[in-house]
Design a binder for these strands. Structure first.
Lengths: 154, 154
DNA sequence: CACATATTGACAACATAAATGTCAATATGA
DNA sequence: TCATATTGACATTTATGTTGTCAATATGTG
């Protein structure tokens, strides 16, 4: 029982550390973007396109879990900087497929590579198995938090 | 080398999962606040006062790592709901000590207890040692991200 | 103890991320 | 073909902060 309480306490604290973690990470990412001309939200668009290939604005919105209207804004910024280009969409004629341009592809690859070098450096003294464990715990937590399981407890 | 890459990749993804984790957690917390009359930011004030005892507005701002002007706003809301009360501060006469009222104390205790029951439920099938590992990894990450170490890599 | 400096609370302006509402144009599918 | 849905564009609103400023008051040092 004591151990159970300890675990819950630690899990509770872990969950509340997600905000400091996110803030520290985003601050760092922002600094890494200095000089690239990218904003954090433009970077998000490029990253998704790089990871999943071209997509429509509503597609990207679904992946980012934010409203398409806001994504449209983000995407338009990347379009006007020639980081992406709208190509005719065979599946839907008014919804263009947004694709990375060569310029956009190179930029996001540079940015991600630089970020990964930093992460490699920061993770040097963390055990690989521990990282895997942490990752699993976090993924499980997200899943549980998003499900409505346990709602009756409230 | 392969393992190092794998670890870095996983660490990178773990870091980027901090936002989904935080969002899922805060959405859930918000739902838990339904019917209490509390907002998330009022809850934050009460939680700090409950955990650390009474404090001045600038103290709370330091703990939350946000500007005192915004914390003032948050605190004023709790004051006007009689969840907290300003008491003369022996150490500084214009800066009142903000303390929980009985009403505030009972409310935050209820809220936290309910949240912990939910966390206990969600963590039931997660190993205690894994939680401890995840917690350590996350704390280490936050520390590394906040330090300027590795800046030269950028 | 006087005086320069800091702290506090209050208020206003601004920034950013995002949600929400609406519309016209166009697609899609029964 | 015609009802319904999707998309992009645009406007408004909300939440969560930051930044700047001010007057009142404290604090601490010579």
């Amino acid at each position: 029982m004591y151990i159970v309480m300890e675990k819950t306490e630690q899990l509770y604290r872990l969950i509340w550390m997600s905000r400091p973690l996110m803030q520290a990470a985003e601050t760092r990412v922002e600094r890494g973007l200095d000089g690239t001309g990218l904003t954090v939200r433009m970077r998000a668009v490029l990253e998704i396109l790089h990871a999943h290939g071209s997509a429509t604005v509503p597609d990207i919105a679904m992946k980012l879990e934010i409203k398409r209207q806001y994504v449209q804004l983000m995407v338009n910024e990347t379009l006007s900087e020639d980081l992406t280009i709208g190509r005719p969409n065979p599946r839907h004629k008014t919804s263009t497929m947004i694709a990375l341009t060569e310029k956009g592809r190179r930029l996001i690859e540079d940015v991600v590579a630089r970020e990964k070098r930093l992460v490699a450096f920061m993770g040097a003294e963390i055990d690989a198995a521990d990282v895997a464990t942490a990752f699993d715990v976090v993924m499980t937590l997200i899943e549980k938090l998003k499900s409505h399981e346990g709602e009756y407890l409230e």
